[in-house]
């Protein structure tokens, strides 16, 4: 658990993080690092707080009244607590992207979906937009399928294509950290495989935190894995170690229950 053992610098780190939906405590004193340009997987039974934890990083909980954070998520290189009231959640979301469980393309053309983040940031230059949209679609392995129909509405794409479009949309603004909440749970195995492959390439430049219910997926794509249970972080470590010889009995039960 000592971050210094790892060759990778820490990108973000939760420290004594508590989270409350009104009076209900959903996260209990979580301490956990995210290593830079590594994939960290969050696993655990339904309702254990994976999404809640993930959504703390881009301050998504601020959208609803009554939610409360305690503790810190320190973000590097700024060395700043993302949860501080002096931090602007919009600035946070400009640097931390998110991909949701269900693809949620905007009611716009394919091009405008990818250009959305740049436009929100005030980018008007057509050349810059064109280049960035093309690059992002390529990075999301979607360019070849859509290059001739950039003006089509995004809804006309298949589910897997829509999810890759959402990834392209998130990539277009060069996020430093990407949050994925069960990004493949609504997709078929082929679309899932293409997105897993994509993540493998992406981690060369962004840090990734992914929630997944699929143990094989966690084992395949992640470098580190965190097992959560009832709002507690039970175990965190290198994925190999967690899957081969978990230290905690509960982790072992969960993993073997699912894998066998």
């Amino acid at each position: 658990m000592n971050p210094n053992q790892h060759p990778y610098p820490v990108k973000a780190e939760a420290r004594k993080l508590n989270f409350f939906y009104g009076l209900v405590q959903a996260l209990k004193a979580i301490d956990m690092p995210l290593y830079e340009r590594q994939v960290t997987a969050l696993i655990g039974p339904s309702g254990c707080g994976k999404s809640t934890f993930l959504r703390c990083f881009n301050r998504m909980h601020d959208l609803y009244p009554g939610n409360r954070y305690e503790g810190e998520i320190v973000f590097h290189p700024d060395n700043t607590n993302l949860l501080s009231t002096e931090v602007d959640p919009i600035e946070v979301r400009m640097r931390i992207g998110m991909v949701f469980q269900k693809p949620n393309p905007f009611p716009k053309s394919i091009f405008e979906n990818v250009a959305y983040g740049l436009r929100v940031r005030g980018e008007r230059n057509r050349r810059v937009l064109d280049d960035k949209v093309e690059q992002s679609l390529k990075d999301a392995a979607l360019w070849n399928e859509v290059k001739d129909r950039l003006k089509d509405m995004a809804f006309n794409l298949s589910g897997g294509q829509q999810q890759r479009l959402c990834i392209a949309r998130a990539l277009a603004t060069d996020p430093e950290l990407l949050l994925f909440d069960e990004p493949t749970s609504a997709l078929d195995p082929i679309a899932t495989a293409s997105i897993e492959e994509l993540m493998h390439d992406l981690k060369k430049r962004v840090t990734i935190l992914i929630v997944t219910h699929n143990m094989q997926q966690a084992a395949r794509i992640s470098d580190h894995t965190a097992y959560m249970y009832l709002g507690d972080l039970i175990e965190f470590g290198k994925t190999d170690e967690i899957f081969i010889k978990p230290r905690d009995k509960r982790t072992e039960d969960y993993i073997t229950g699912r894998l066998s």
């Binding site: 998504m60 979301r93 992207g97 949701f100 393309p105 983040g117 929100v120």
Partner: peptide, 13 residues
């Protein structure tokens, strides 16, 4: 749906 709004907020809108 809220998911669409969340997507937009998540982009820094």
């Amino acid at each position: 749906p809220m998911s669409l709004r969340e997507g937009a907020y998540a982009m820094g809108s």
